[in-house]
Design a binder for these strands. Sequence first.
DNA 1: TTCATTATGGATCGTTAATATCCATAATAG
DNA 2: CTATTATGGATATTAACGATCCATAATGAA
Lengths: 152, 152
Amino acid sequence: MQYTKSTGYALHALIHLAQKDSGQYVGIKELSAALVVSESYLSKIMSKLRQDGIVRAVTGASGGYELARSADRITFLDVIQVVEGRQHLYECFHGEESTPDAIYDMDSEECLVKKVMIGAEMHLHSYLEQHTIQGVLDAAAQRGSRAGNKKA
Amino acid sequence: MQYTKSTGYALHALIHLAQKDSGQYVGIKELSAALVVSESYLSKIMSKLRQDGIVRAVTGASGGYELARSADRITFLDVIQVVEGRQHLYECFHGEESTPDAIYDMDSEECLVKKVMIGAEMHLHSYLEQHTIQGVLDAAAQRGSRAGNKKA
DNA sequence: TTCATTATGGATCGTTAATATCCATAATAG
DNA sequence: CTATTATGGATATTAACGATCCATAATGAA
């Protein structure tokens, strides 16, 4: 039970983009160099982020990526759900979905173990929803301003 | 990012055991029949639970498993950590710890992303710690006594 | 237009984790 | 002694993850 590397790459790529001005496109070359990951692999992840409307992409010379909305409106949950998929923490009958969205209906005659797990999921999501890309930048700025111990 | 089937089996097996009296051993045959899973597979999971002191096992004729402590002191977190392992939700440097390159260390974002994830993990664990096997039994009893609105 | 640049999507491949089974062994009640 | 029952090792199968390559389309610039 661990988030994949892809989620880490996605978060860091977005943090990188968030440090640029709007309209300033960043190519996959710069991103992959910054994150120390291959262009081909990272481009798959960026493509997912684009399909989900988290970044915009422009092909062709001097093209690249930029955030599709401000960094304070991109939450950890947004990113995680795009990259990891929107599976539930626990499924009673692994492999098949019974109801589309009635999964959060606590009154249905569902497995009691699942009820506990749905609660866990909601707690987790609630936390991840409250943390944004901008939040990380703010924390970094705070850290940077503290007693000039910049370089490690 | 989903708990494995094994976790589901473990939780249901413990719920089954919790419904028996102390000193009443339950064999793998009964358990696997109740959960609709093979004996050989479930026995691996039970063995883990035993190694971690969650159940006791007695070999030989009329042997089997029983809870090693009361059901209200076996939390979801206990079970999950035994079956899933105690990995973190997120690792900065998945697997390896090298990459002294870390050029993108400009703001030490790596640790900041992890900091958010550690917070998420703590929230999740806090919730899972507060839910026990006994809690599920209690919920089941309540549901059973609500004679009437069984089906929505 | 032509060319270099850049993202996209399909196909593929190796590695690892999860799922699952079988068997030999050890322990124990009767 | 024998039937029963858990244990641990070995192994096979499947699915997910991590990663790469290539053909294609879109775009800015010469």
